[in-house]
C-alpha cells in the first residue's frame, strides 16, 4: 500500500484544479491523470467528475487506485498500465472519452525522455489534436513538475524546433531552475495551442519552495458559453505571473517569468 505522504503543495494544487474545473460549470467531467494509490486527485475533484481515465506504469498502483475510488459514484472508469506519455501519444486519440481535466502529475521533471520529440512532444501534440476536435468546449490541463530531472539540456533540446520570440529565446537561454522549466513548458504549450487555434488562460501556476511547480491552464477552441473565465491568445502565456509559496509567509508572492 502507498506510503507517500501528501504535501501541502499537492493539496493546494488539487484545490486550484478543482477551482479551474468549477469555472467550466459542468459536473460531468472526465478526468485523465496519474492519480496514484490514494487517488486524491479524483477524491478532490469528485463533485465535478463523471468518468476517469487512470494511468500508471505499475499495475499494483492501479489495483490500489481501483479500490480507492470504488466508493465514488463514477460512470466510466478506465485503468491503463502504461507510461502516460505513451498513452497520450498512442491510445488517447482512439479513446471514446474526452478528457475535460487532465493532470500530469510528475514527481520528476516535465520533460525527461531521451528523445522528447518521440515521446513528450508527440504525446502533447496527440493530446491537443484530440481536444481540438471538440470546439466550443473548454478544458483544464494541469502539469506538475520538479527540477530533479535530466537537466536544462533536455528542455533546450525539446525546444530547438520551436518558433520563439526574441524575449522567449532570451529567457530560455538565461533562466535556471524551476523558473527555467516553467518558461520552457509555457513556450512548448504556447506553440502547440497556437497551432490548433486554442484560446487559453493560465488559471494558476504555483511554485512551492522552489522545488515543485504546478501549472494549470484553461483552454478552448472557439467559445465555451458556460466557461466563466475569459480566455486569450496563447502568446500571453509567457506574460502570466506565477505564485511562489514559501515557508514562513502567510501569502504566496506573485512573480513574473519575465523578470
Amino acid at each position: 500500500m502507498a506510503i507517500h505522504q501528501e504535501s501541502d503543495a499537492k493539496q493546494a494544487s488539487r484545490q486550484m484544479i478543482l477551482q479551474a474545473c468549477s469555472s467550466l460549470h459542468r459536473n460531468n467531467l472526465t478526468y485523465l491523470g496519474m492519480p496514484a494509490e490514494a487517488a486524491l486527485d479524483i477524491k478532490t475533484l469528485k463533485s465535478v467528475l463523471q468518468n476517469v481515465i487512470c494511468i500508471a506504469d505499475n499495475s499494483n498502483t492501479l489495483a490500489e487506485t481501483k479500490r480507492s475510488i470504488a466508493g465514488l459514484r463514477l460512470l466510466q472508469k478506465r485503468f491503463k498500465t502504461i507510461d502516460v506519455w505513451a498513452y497520450l501519444r498512442d491510445e488517447y486519440p482512439s479513446e471514446s472519452l474526452i478528457a475535460d481535466v487532465t493532470f500530469l502529475d510528475f514527481y520528476g521533471g516535465g520533460i525527461m525522455k531521451d528523445d522528447p520529440f518521440a515521446t513528450e512532444i508527440a504525446a502533447l501534440r496527440s493530446y491537443f489534436a484530440k481536444q481540438a476536435r471538440f470546439p466550443n468546449r473548454a478544458f483544464v490541463f494541469a502539469w506538475t513538475f520538479m527540477p530533479h530531472d535530466k537537466g536544462k539540456g533536455v528542455y533546450v533540446s525539446a525546444l530547438e524546433k520551436q518558433k520563439m520570440s526574441a524575449i522567449e529565446a532570451e529567457l530560455v537561454r538565461d533562466a535556471t531552475g524551476v523558473r527555467f522549466r516553467a518558461i520552457a513548458l509555457r513556450v512548448l504549450l504556447r506553440q502547440i495551442l497556437d497551432e490548433h487555434g486554442f484560446a487559453v488562460k493560465l488559471f494558476h501556476q504555483l511554485l512551492y519552495k522552489q522545488v515543485m511547480s504546478t501549472m494549470i491552464l484553461l483552454f478552448c477552441k472557439g467559445i465555451d458559453p458556460q466557461c466563466d473565465v475569459p480566455l486569450g491568445s496563447p502568446d500571453t502565456l509567457i506574460q502570466e505571473p506565477y505564485y511562489a509559496y514559501e515557508s514562513g509567509r502567510p501569502i504566496p508572492s506573485q512573480m513574473s517569468l519575465l523578470a
Partner: peptide, 11 residues
C-alpha cells in the same frame, strides 16, 4: 449515505 457497487474488467 450510499453503497457503491462498481465493476472493472482489466485488459
Amino acid at each position: 449515505r450510499e453503497i457503491q457497487v462498481s465493476r472493472v474488467r482489466d485488459e
